[in-house]
């Protein structure tokens, strides 16, 4: 073990509540309420309510206020990307992670060693958020959601073209697209717009408020309409976005002859798509795939890699084959399905 990495273990380590930074006296993405939390991004398994103080990007703060109400967190302290923040001799910076709007890596520097905590991240372009910025560091703390060599995501644009091709082929069948409400939804909408789809896009009620927030934060999503809750189907047609749980649930019955699509990295695996009865699996992910994980780890130049959640066994094995020190932190509370 290198000297810096060895030292790092003494001031950043896993606890029951989550990853804890001792000199800064804060937790990163804790899953229990804490006095002070640094939050990488707004997904529910990373950003939880009940902390006394939260330090994060202004976008993530806006997302948390929207999701949990104005009083769910004692006080927000927001920092811009790249701005250095000094706490008890420790330097903290938030750097774009490319995962969703407002997502950040947490870069910590203390007594000469630098640790970057990735949160969730991806390297492929996303029109709704800033691109991941690789950080040269001693220890890189990475996610591993898709850490198996079978996971190589498609180019998102190509998947969107498949969706549009299917719609052209069967224009009379509404296309229900299951998407995670924060991030994936807005990314898919924006990609559709970039591909020239200008028709109204219909939304399940649960997706409205986050889309509105994206619009408020300056992301034009075009003509969005809400699926009428009263009438079966109503006037909705073409592309209809809904949470994955609504696919094949009672809500979807109002579209009796629909094509069910699901935009997720898990759709790479046929059994996953079949399990959900998905007719049009779209491999669009907001997480790094296997080559991105390996490539990013190399790019950081880190002598040691800590793996937070996902398929850590495969990644740790691969890194040890590459001669990189790696260990699984086995943090609890992160959801495999957060896609």
């Amino acid at each position: 073990m290198t000297h810096s990495a060895h030292i790092a273990e003494r001031w950043l380590y896993p606890t029951d509540a989550g990853l804890y930074c001792e000199p800064g006296d804060f937790f990163i993405d804790p899953h229990l309420p804490t006095p002070r939390a640094v939050i990488t991004h707004g997904h529910a398994d990373h950003a939880r309510a009940g902390h006394d103080a939260v330090l994060t990007t202004s976008e993530t703060a806006a997302i948390m206020r929207l999701r949990y109400g104005p009083d769910a967190v004692g006080r927000f302290e927001t920092v811009a990307y790249g701005e250095t923040h000094r706490i008890n001799g420790l330097d903290l910076k938030l750097v774009p992670a490319g995962h969703i709007l407002g997502s950040a890596q947490v870069v910590l520097e203390y007594q000469g060693s630098r640790i970057a905590i990735s949160g969730d991240y991806k390297r492929s372009p996303d029109p709704t958020c800033e691109a991941f910025e690789p950080i040269n560091c001693d220890v890189f703390v990475t996610e591993a959601t898709f850490a198996l060599p079978v996971f190589r995501h498609e180019v998102a644009q190509k998947e969107i073209q498949r969706l549009l091709a299917s719609l052209r082929l069967e224009p009379d069948r509404p296309h229900l697209v299951g998407v995670y409400g924060l991030g994936k939804c807005q990314r898919v909408i924006k990609l559709l717009r970039e591909e020239g789809y200008d028709d109204p896009i219909w939304l399940h009620g649960a997706l409205i408020s986050l889309c509105d927030l994206y619009k408020d934060l300056g992301h034009d999503l075009g003509d969005l309409r809400v699926v009428d809750t009263e009438k079966p189907g109503g006037t909705a047609q073409g592309i209809i976005m809904c949470p994955p749980s609504a696919l094949g649930d009672r809500w979807s019955r109002r579209f009796p002859d629909s094509v069910s699509a699901f935009a997720s990295g898990w759709m790479r695996i046929r059994a996953r798509a079949r399990q959900r009865g998905v007719e049009l699996p779209l491999v669009i992910s907001d997480h790094a795939d296997w080559p991105e994980l390996i490539g990013t780890i190399r790019e950081t130049g880190a002598a040691e890699i800590w793996v937070t959640h996902g398929r850590d066994d495969a990644l740790v094995h691969q890194l040890s084959q590459m001669g990189v020190k790696a260990k699984a932190l086995a943090l609890v509370g992160f959801e495999d399905e957060a896609e």
Binding site: A314, Q318, Q321
Partner: peptide, 27 residues
């Protein structure tokens, strides 16, 4: 093409040999 440990982890996860090989074969 692939490290045996990674292959077995992948095969276990995917549940089908043809699909596993198709997915992890290098592009």
């Amino acid at each position: 093409i692939v490290d045996p440990v990674l292959y077995h982890l992948s095969r276990d996860y995917v549940g089908d040999t043809a699909e596993t090989v198709a997915l992890l074969w290098p592009d």
